[in-house]
């Protein structure tokens, strides 16, 4: 399909695919991890609207 130039075209597309997929996947992985951490903190009483610091427990 690409003739003599396959050795240049295929790596170019492969590297592009790897980098773009990696960017998307790592962003999603970070999102899941951060959301989980935020949930743990909120469950320990550290919600944004926590009014009484005395009710705050140390997060696990």
């Amino acid at each position: 399909m690409f003739g003599d130039h396959a050795a240049f075209i295929i790596p170019a597309y492969a590297i592009t695919a790897i980098v773009l997929i990696w960017l998307s996947v790592q962003s999603r992985i970070q999102y899941n991890a951060l959301r989980k951490e935020l949930k743990i903190l909120e469950d320990s009483g550290l919600g944004r609207r926590a009014k009484n610091p005395a009710t705050i427990k140390a997060p696990k």
Binding site: L38, L41, S44, L46, R48, P53, P59
Partner: peptide, 15 residues
């Protein structure tokens, strides 16, 4: 993600 990171940081400082 960055907003979440900042919220977590604020909560940890509050804690």
């Amino acid at each position: 993600n960055e907003i979440f990171r900042r919220r977590i940081r604020s909560m940890r400082m509050l804690s």
